[in-house]
Design a protein around this nucleic acid. Sequence first.
DNA 1: CAGTCTCCCGCAATCGTTTGTATTAAAGGA
DNA 2: TCCTTTAATACAAACGATTGCGGGAGACTG
Lengths: 337, 337
Amino acid sequence: MKDVAREAGVHVSTASRALNPSTAPNVNPETVERVVEAARKLGYRPHPLARGLRTNRTMSVGVVIPDVENPLFGPIIAGVESVLVEEGYSVLIGNADRGPGHADSLVEDMLERHVDGLILATPGREVSESARNAQRDVSMVLVNRSVDDDSIPAIVGDDHAGIGLAVRHLRELGHERIGHVAGPSWVSTGKGRREAFLDWMATVGLDTDERLVEEAEWYQVEPGTTAALALLGRNPDLTAIVAANDLLGLGCYRAVRSLGRVIGSDVSITGYNDIPLLDLMQPPMTAVRVPYRKMGADAASTLLALLAGEDVPPGRVALQPTLAIRASTAPPVLGAR
Amino acid sequence: MKDVAREAGVHVSTASRALNPSTAPNVNPETVERVVEAARKLGYRPHPLARGLRTNRTMSVGVVIPDVENPLFGPIIAGVESVLVEEGYSVLIGNADRGPGHADSLVEDMLERHVDGLILATPGREVSESARNAQRDVSMVLVNRSVDDDSIPAIVGDDHAGIGLAVRHLRELGHERIGHVAGPSWVSTGKGRREAFLDWMATVGLDTDERLVEEAEWYQVEPGTTAALALLGRNPDLTAIVAANDLLGLGCYRAVRSLGRVIGSDVSITGYNDIPLLDLMQPPMTAVRVPYRKMGADAASTLLALLAGEDVPPGRVALQPTLAIRASTAPPVLGAR
DNA sequence: CAGTCTCCCGCAATCGTTTGTATTAAAGGA
DNA sequence: TCCTTTAATACAAACGATTGCGGGAGACTG
C-alpha cells in the first residue's frame, strides 16, 4: 500500500481511504481514480492480517460440526460456505468427533483466532458454559439444533411438520397401528420428533400410547434394529413405523426382515432426512426430506445479519420439509390384524 | 502481553521470548517462570493476527474440495482436520462446486488470506496455472488426485492395487469374461483405474480387449447405468463388471436388473470406495475400500513436514486399499455362456 | 587487575493497515 | 479585507506481537 500511495503521489492514509468504499467519499474523486489505477497497476492486495489487527475483524467464521463424516452435514457446510464466501468471509471448520467437551474446546480455539462469528451444529439441548461465554464475544447462530430456552437464533427443520407428513401419509394409506422408533431424548431432534409423533397421532385420531414409542440409543442402524425389534415385540399388530432418522429406518428394515415380514406390504416404514442412496435401497425408502443446504445457507445469512448489526430476534426459524414417497410405504394388508 | 510483562516486572520483549518455546532458552529460567505465571494469572492469549503479521504465518491451511456434499470427502476432511488441529493449525474449507475455474478462484482467495499451506482434492490431471503459481508461495499437497508430471506431493489410494483386488477376486471366483465401467478419463482416477483394469486382466490371463471397457460420463448412478447397458449390449456374455466407483456400480445394478438378470449369480459387480450404506444395498455390494480418513491424515502430515522445512520428495504416495467382500460377487453360473 | 566472554534483558523498529486529528488551501460571508 | 467554513490531504498513533541489536553485570582468563 505504501507503493500504491507513492505511485499515486499521495500519503498512505489517503490511499487507504480511497481504496475503502466507506471512506472514499471523503477524498477527491480524481484522487480516488489515481489511487485505484495505481493499485490495479501494481496488483495491490490488502493484507488481511494487518487489516484485521487494526479493525478487529478477521472476516472469518467458525463452523462446528459434530461429525464431518456424517453425510448429513455436507449440504449444511456447502450452504454455509456458499453464502459466506460470497460476502468475503472464510469458513473455518471444526469437527467435534472426539466426544463431549471437544466441541467446547473447538469453540475456544476459534475464539482465540478471533473469528467474527460462529455457526454451531453440535447436538445437545443445552448451551454449554463456553458457548454461553462465546455469545458475549461473537455473533452466533445454531443450525439443525436449538437450545431449550431459545436464547440463540437457530435455523432448524420443522420436525413437527415433518413427522406430520409421515404420519398423515401413513394414515391416508389406511394405517391405524403406527409405531415410532425415536432418537435419543437428550438430542433436540430426538425429543422433538417423539413429541411430534404423539401429537400427530392424536390429531389423526389414533392411539397415543407411549408403548408405541421405542427409543434408540443412538442414530445408527444397529440401535434402530434393536429398538424396532422391541417395538414390534411389544406391538405385534403394528403395520407401520415412523423412524426418527434414516439410519434408524434402515435398522427397522433389518428388524422387519428378520421377523420374516415384508417391508411395504406387511410393515410400512418412513425415514427422516432423506440421505443420499436411500432411493436405491430395496425397497426405496419413503422419507421426510429436510432442506439441509438451505438450512446452512439461511444460518449463514442470519449470521451475516447479526454481523451487520441488525437485530435478529433469538428463537428458532423452522424450514419446511417435504415427503419423498417411495416403495417402503403402502396400504396395510387388509385383515392382517 | 504488555500487562503480562508489567505483572512479571519485565519488558514485553522479554515476556515474548519467555512465552515462546524457541526463544525461551535465551532467558533466565526463573524469569520464564515469573512470566509464565503472570500469563496464566492474567489469562493471557496471544493475538494470532498480531503474531501472524510479524511472523508472516497464519497457522491456517486451506483445503479445497470439489464437492463437500459427496460423502467421500467427509473422511478426508476429518483426517486432515484431526492432525492439523493437533498442531495448532486451523482448517479453511473451500467448496469448488461452481464448475471449472471455481477451484482456482478459491485458491486465490486462500492465498490472499496468507494460508501457510494448501491441500487440494480437486480433480483434473493437470496443474492449473494458479496452482502452479501457488506452489511458489505456499506449501501444497494433493489428496486423492495427482498430476501427470508428479511435480507436487500427492497422497492417493493405490488404484492399481485396488483394481487388482477386484479383478483377482473375480478371477478366483471363476469369472473369465469381465468388463469395466470406467470413470471419465480426464479425471486421474478414471484414467488410472481403466489402465489398471486392462493391466490386471492381462496379469490373470484374460482378454484385454478395449471393448471390455465402457466409459461413463461422470461418477454418478445414471451414467453408470447407461455405460453398463452399452457394455452388456456389446458383450452379452459378461459375467462380471468392475465399476470404477460405487455409484457407477449402483448404476450397473440397475442395468443388470433392467435386463432381467440377477446380480451376483448372473452378473457379479464390484464397486470402488465403499461409501456408507453400500453394505445395506440389496444385495450388499462388494467394493474396494480406500482408507480415506488416513489419506487425509497423511496429506496433512506431509504438509506439516513441508511447513517444517523438511525435504519432501514430490511424487505420489499410494495407500493400500482392501476388499470388502459382500453378496454382489459370486461364482458365475456354470454353462451360462 | 584489566580485558574478554557470556548471559540476560531492554530498546526500538517492524509487520500493513486504519483512523483521529492537524494542516493546508480555497471558497464563502460580512 | 479579514475571518470562518469546508474540503482534501498529510501526519502519526495505534493494533499486538516478534526480533536484531546493544548494553550492563558478572564470571572467567592470563
